[in-house]
Amino acid sequence: MPMEKITFANQLLQYLITGLTVGSTYAMVAIGFNIIYNVTEIINLAQGEFVMLGGLVMVFLHVAAGLPIVLAFPLTVIIVTLVGMLLDRLAIRPIRQPSVLTLIIATIAASIIIKGIAMFIWGKDPFDLPAFSGRHPIHFLGAVIQPQYFWIIGFLIVIVIFLTLFFEKTIIGKAMSACADNPGAASLVGINVKRMILLSFALSAAIGAVAGITITPISLMEYDRGAMLAIKGFGAVVLGGLGSFPGAILGGLILGTIESFGAGLIHSGYKDAFALIVLLGALFLRPSGLLGSIEVSKFKRF
């Protein structure tokens, strides 16, 4: 098949598609940030490590141990969820005088430890995972889409629907939201705040694992990928507004798209800088993010 000539319009479409898929992974990390933030007001900088673990544990179960994908997938999520719960029990709960700094350092320490252990287990090389539905790219108006992209976006949508239902329809979900609004009052009405925090770490780790499993077939995975993912996710969550789920998705997609258009149209070496400059500009104009509420943020401790 001779290579077709690519037009400028095709290129723009390709930039958009790439931006949206890369942005979806940022959004998934950002959602993980928000779940914990909403209950505890902590930014968990070890969030990226959940994604890394998701990818590597899946590689171990599916590729090395040979478990079928339908079994390896849930098992991976469960294992990473347990790591998330351990993180809360061992690193967050023991802290008696929480402040922004101590909590940030605690999650950084945790991420250093998790990364170190991952290096010990898997070594330093990147690993690959077979794509869920093959590697034959789909052609669309001159642009190319990896089938795996649909899995990423699909899982993002499923997660959003699940979380919306969970926080708005179930009692546990409502209780978790209550902890965020006023932990003192929440415990007065009989909500076990500590258990809710544990649950938030579990949920967030599970979502991180799903993100890791779905992106590894495209981008490979190695032990030290977590930090970069955490930074991008943090950017997305702040751009969208802390605590807001639609904000996290919007923030992630915007960051991904700016990076891709910046690289395609201006200069690829500065693509991360473009995204961050836009982020700074947005913060200076709207100090609580695009969809964050200034009124609400006044009541937050951090």
Partner: peptide, 13 residues
């Protein structure tokens, strides 16, 4: 970076 599609698309052009 996890994706170089953009750079290659530009190169393709």
């Amino acid at each position: 970076d996890t994706d170089m599609t953009v750079q290659l698309t530009k190169i393709k052009g």
